[in-house]
Amino acid sequence: MSSNRRRTGPNGSDWRNALFIAPYLFFFLTLLVFPLFWGIWLSFHKADTFSSGAFVGFNNYVRLFNDHVFLQSIWNTFYFVFLTVPALAIIGLTLALALNSSSRLATVLRSLYFSSSVLSVTIVTLIWRIVFVPQFGLLSTIYGWFGAEAPAVLADPDLAMIGIALTTIWWCIGLPMMLFLAALQQIPGDIYEAAALDNAGWWRTLISITLPSIRRTFVLVLIIQIVLQFQLFGQSWLLTRGGPNNLTKPIVLYIYDIAFRRWDVGLGAAASEVLFALILVAAMTQYLISRRQEER
């Protein structure tokens, strides 16, 4: 087989062909692969900005799991993922179902719902700060019309994370909607015609044709969003600085605090390895569950 290919194909194996890959590979190895292993190595050392000091074994990891702020930040991250990912998937799907037409209104609404996604986290948090802020806030103004006083969302222990989640959903809703729209376009139209002939109603068509056809996209959206939302940083840092009482401090903000504000680089590296492991496990679990369901 391989000799056959070599004889007939003009593409002989030649190391010089690798020169096309070499430029990218250089950056890949120096800026991704090397830092990945360097980070693991750092997590076993007592290190600061410029140097890595003594080998300390698992000491950094032990310190990490004895730090209640870190444990809190793991809990916060999971809570945030739980608040945002299902909402993004369900709202994104609803939007896609409603706007899957070529009418003018649907076109305008599609670009409207996607437009927030092109903004940076800084602008998004500025906008939402001005929604939540007590004095000039949109929220407090609306409450004011009814003679009520709005809660200080971002300062309230129970509401702060919900406020960050709302901001995030507003910011990120465009991508899931687009992914679902792309999937809906792939469903062949004659299935729907057959369903219409069978007198299947709107609800029945949705349940037995539309949803099963886009199941793979649903899993894809969940995995993308889990990976993305696990990395929450900007919204928390800019809206609440992780407060009140570390209740909105996610893992990435913990890493930022430890590694880049307190310069305890070894501990920060250890925390980032834990985050890496969590993301991998979460995404893999989601993937394996979906695979098993598909096999059944």
């Binding site: 800026l31 991704l32 090397f34 830092p35 990945l36 360097w38 980070g39 750092l42 290190a47 900005t49 410029f50 890595s52 990395q231 990435v252 890493i255 590694a259 880049f260 680089v265 920060g268 590296a269 980032s272 390895e273 985050l275 890496f276």
Partner: peptide
């Protein structure tokens, strides 16, 4: 985030 700390040091 998995490479950030090391990258910053480099």
């Amino acid at each position: 985030q998995a490479v950030l700390v090391a990258r910053h040091q480099i």
